[in-house]
Structures are given as structure tokens and as C-alpha cells.
Amino acid sequence: MKTTRGQNYLIMLLGFLGLGALFGGGALIISPSGDLLGMPLFLLESSPFTDFLIPGLILFILLGIMPCMLIFALIRKPASAFAEKLNCYHDMLWPWTFSVYISFILITWIQLEMVFLQAVSWLHTFYMLLAIAILFVALLPTVRVQYRKPV
């Protein structure tokens, strides 16, 4: 089946998120002190973390690896019994549902980051808008029809 413009947008948005999170999360894993990204440890004073290792792992896995794997799933639409168990939209294929999940994971990540850092920057706004864009594009009727389960 031919991909639609909406599907291509969804894949590009997830690719942008995934690559950025792989880079940012990877940098925090390699340098838990935050030095590699110029992030001082005092930023974590209001958080439960003493360094950036755990946030880096979460960023790398949930917002880096997952969106990148999801791109493959959106294109190939593979069957997955495990993913289907986590699919709360029973009329939709799991890759579409996980695209919606990723947007909510990103919104939660940004909200927690703002609480823990006790600050808001332009990057928080940018990534919040990215989460909304991913959700908006996933909900487009032309995208939904491509990921509806066959009856």
C-alpha cells in the first residue's frame, strides 16, 4: 500500500525525536556529569537524581530507541503479540497506537523535566509542540485509515 503524506510526516517527526534523544541520551550516558552537553549537576538539585545517568538512559530508550524502532513498525506493520497486548485501541494496529503513546511519553518527560529543573526554556516549548504535532498527525483521518486493522 502506498504511504500517504501524513504517514511520511509522522515518520519524519518520530525520526527527529528519536535521533535527537539518541544523541542527548547517549551524551548523558557517556558523561553522567552533564559536562558533554554543558549541563551542570546543580540542575538536578530538585530531582531524585544525583547525576544524569538515569535520565540519560530513560531518554535514550523511551524517546530514542522506541521512536526509531517505531518508524520500522509503521512502515512494515509487523505482527507482535506482545505489542498487541499493550494496544488499547483494538481497532488499530499497534504501531499507530505506540505513536500516540510516544507523544504522551514526551509530554510527560517535558513536564517532569520542567518540575525537576524548576525552569522552562524554549526547548521545552519546542519539544512540547513536537509531541502535539506527533499526536495531531497520528490522529489525521488519512493516517488512521492506513493503520486500521483489517475487518
Rank of each mutant, 00 (worst) to 15 (best):
residue 59 L to W: 06
residue 99 S to E: 06
residue 106 L to N: 03
residue 16 F to D: 03
residue 7 Q to N: 10
residue 23 F to W: 06
residue 47 S to A: 10
residue 125 T to D: 07
residue 112 L to E: 14
residue 73 A to W: 14
residue 17 L to Q: 08
residue 89 Y to T: 03
residue 121 S to N: 05
residue 125 T to V: 15
residue 103 S to P: 09
residue 101 Y to S: 10
residue 17 L to R: 05
residue 130 L to Q: 06
residue 50 T to F: 08
residue 54 I to W: 15
residue 92 M to D: 01
residue 11 I to A: 07
residue 39 M to T: 08
residue 104 F to P: 06
residue 30 I to T: 08
residue 119 A to E: 15
residue 78 P to S: 02
residue 96 W to P: 04
residue 10 L to W: 04
residue 70 L to Y: 00
residue 144 R to N: 04
residue 60 F to S: 03
residue 89 Y to H: 12
residue 108 T to S: 15
residue 33 S to A: 08
residue 119 A to G: 05
residue 55 P to D: 11
residue 148 R to I: 12
residue 32 P to I: 00
residue 37 L to V: 00
residue 32 P to L: 05
residue 60 F to D: 04
residue 78 P to F: 01
residue 12 M to H: 07
residue 43 L to I: 10
residue 49 F to V: 01
residue 119 A to R: 13
residue 138 A to R: 11
residue 20 G to D: 07
residue 2 K to R: 12
residue 101 Y to C: 06
residue 48 P to A: 08
residue 72 F to R: 15
residue 33 S to D: 14
residue 29 I to N: 00
residue 108 T to M: 14
residue 134 I to S: 02
residue 13 L to V: 03
residue 41 L to R: 05
residue 79 A to E: 11
residue 42 F to L: 15
residue 51 D to M: 12
residue 44 L to F: 00
residue 42 F to I: 11
residue 129 L to M: 10
residue 131 A to N: 10
residue 20 G to A: 06
residue 71 I to H: 07
residue 85 K to G: 08
residue 107 I to N: 11
residue 60 F to T: 03
residue 134 I to E: 04
residue 136 F to G: 04
residue 86 L to M: 10
residue 91 D to A: 15
residue 119 A to V: 10
residue 123 L to K: 09
residue 84 E to I: 00
residue 81 A to Q: 07
residue 25 G to T: 00
residue 49 F to S: 06
residue 96 W to C: 00
residue 89 Y to F: 15
residue 133 A to G: 14
residue 32 P to S: 02
residue 67 P to N: 02
residue 141 P to G: 05
residue 65 I to Y: 06
residue 70 L to T: 01
residue 110 I to H: 01
residue 114 M to Q: 15
residue 78 P to Q: 03
residue 9 Y to E: 00
residue 13 L to I: 01
residue 13 L to G: 02
residue 50 T to G: 13
residue 22 L to V: 09
residue 64 G to D: 09
residue 140 L to Q: 14
residue 144 R to E: 05
residue 124 H to Q: 03
residue 24 G to I: 10
residue 52 F to S: 01
residue 6 G to S: 13
residue 134 I to G: 08
residue 40 P to E: 10
residue 127 Y to K: 04
residue 50 T to E: 09
residue 127 Y to P: 02
residue 52 F to D: 01
residue 110 I to R: 09
residue 73 A to F: 11
residue 120 V to R: 07
residue 31 S to F: 09
residue 133 A to L: 13
residue 84 E to A: 00
residue 100 V to C: 14
residue 55 P to I: 08
residue 123 L to Q: 09
residue 123 L to A: 11
residue 84 E to C: 03
residue 150 P to D: 15
residue 75 I to F: 14
residue 60 F to K: 08
residue 108 T to H: 08
residue 19 L to W: 05
residue 89 Y to Q: 07
residue 147 Y to C: 11
residue 32 P to C: 01
residue 73 A to Y: 12
residue 88 C to Q: 13
residue 35 D to K: 07
residue 110 I to V: 12
residue 19 L to M: 12
residue 61 I to G: 12
residue 29 I to C: 06
residue 1 M to S: 14
residue 79 A to P: 04
residue 67 P to T: 03
residue 65 I to W: 13
residue 100 V to G: 06
residue 132 I to R: 10
residue 139 L to F: 07
residue 63 L to W: 01
residue 66 M to K: 05
residue 49 F to N: 01
residue 30 I to S: 13
residue 147 Y to N: 05
residue 57 L to C: 14
residue 80 S to Y: 01
residue 74 L to V: 04
residue 132 I to E: 11
residue 56 G to Y: 02
